[in-house]
Simulated assay, not measured.
Amino acid sequence: MKTEITELKICPRCGKAYHGVPALSRADSATLICPDCGTREALESIGVKPSEQEEILETVHRSMRG
């Protein structure tokens, strides 16, 4: 049986815990943030409204669950 150990990290942008590969913040190109905040920053940069950003993230999360 294979045991996978994943490190839990706290996103400095939203304060929520996450695991997996972080995103590099567009704000300073140095800070590692959670994937959701990385997606939000990318969508924000092309003018997507916050309410639409959340809808997109919900769709991404649903598709990743199966």
Rank of each mutant, 00 (worst) to 15 (best):
Leu8Lys: 12
Arg65Asn: 09
Leu57Glu: 05
Gly47Met: 05
Ala17Arg: 10
Thr6Gln: 12
Ser45Thr: 02
Pro50Lys: 12
Ser25Cys: 02
Ser29Cys: 09
Pro22Leu: 08
Lys16Asp: 05
Glu52Gly: 06
Pro22Met: 11
Ile46Asn: 01
Asp28Lys: 05
Gly38Cys: 09
Glu58Arg: 09
Pro12Trp: 02
Gln53Trp: 13
Val60Trp: 01
Met64Cys: 12
Met64Gly: 03
Glu4Thr: 10
Lys49Glu: 15
Ile5Asn: 04
Ser29Pro: 02
Pro22Ile: 10
Ser63Lys: 15
Thr3Cys: 00
Asp28Ile: 00
Gly47Trp: 07
Thr39Arg: 06
Gly20His: 01
Pro12Glu: 08
His61Trp: 06
Ala30His: 14
His19Ile: 04
Ala42Glu: 13
Thr3Pro: 03
Lys49Ile: 08
Ala23Glu: 06
Lys49Ser: 09
Ile56Glu: 00
Ser51Ala: 15
Val48Asp: 06
Val60Lys: 08
Ser29Phe: 11
Ala17Thr: 10
Thr39Asn: 03
Tyr18Cys: 09
Tyr18Thr: 11
Gly20Asp: 06
Ile10Ala: 00
Ile56Ala: 12
Ala42Val: 07
Ile33Ala: 15
Thr31Lys: 09
Lys9Ile: 01
Ile5Phe: 08
Arg40Tyr: 15
Lys9Val: 01
Ile56Lys: 02
Leu24Trp: 00
Ile10Cys: 00
Val21Ala: 09
Ala23Asn: 03
Ile46Ser: 09
Met1Arg: 14
Gln53Lys: 03
Arg26Phe: 01
Thr39Trp: 00
Arg40His: 07
Thr6Trp: 03
Leu24Val: 15
His19Asp: 09
Val60Tyr: 04
Leu43Met: 15
Pro35Phe: 09
His61Pro: 00
Arg13Asp: 15
Leu32Pro: 00
Gly15Glu: 02
Thr31Gly: 02
Cys34Ser: 08
Ile56Asp: 03
Val60Gly: 00
Ala23Phe: 08
Ala27Lys: 10
Leu43Ala: 08
Ile33Asp: 12
Lys2Asp: 03
Arg62Tyr: 02
Lys49Gln: 12
Glu52Arg: 14
Glu41Trp: 12
Glu44Thr: 11
Pro35Arg: 11
Cys11Arg: 11
Cys11His: 04
Gly47Cys: 11
Glu7Leu: 13
Gly15Leu: 10
Ala30Met: 14
Ser45Asp: 12
Gly47Gln: 02
Leu43Val: 04
Ile56Thr: 11
Ser51Met: 10
Gly38Asp: 04
Gly38Ile: 00
Gly15Arg: 01
Glu54Tyr: 14
Arg65His: 06
Cys11Ser: 03
Ser63Thr: 14
Asp36Glu: 13
Tyr18Ser: 05
Ala23Arg: 14
Arg65Ala: 03
Glu55Phe: 05
Ser63Tyr: 11
Pro35Thr: 10
Ala42His: 01
Glu55His: 05
Gly20Phe: 07
Ile46Gln: 13
Met1Glu: 12
Ala27Arg: 10
Thr3Leu: 12
Met64Ala: 13
Cys34Asp: 11
Ser63Asn: 13
Met1Thr: 14
Arg62Leu: 15
Thr3Trp: 13
Arg13Gln: 10
Pro35Ser: 14
Cys34His: 04
His19Cys: 02
His61Phe: 02
Val48Glu: 04
Cys11Lys: 01
Ser63His: 14
Ser45Ala: 15
Ala17Asp: 11
Glu52Pro: 00
Arg65Glu: 14
Ala23Met: 05
Arg65Cys: 03
Ser45His: 12
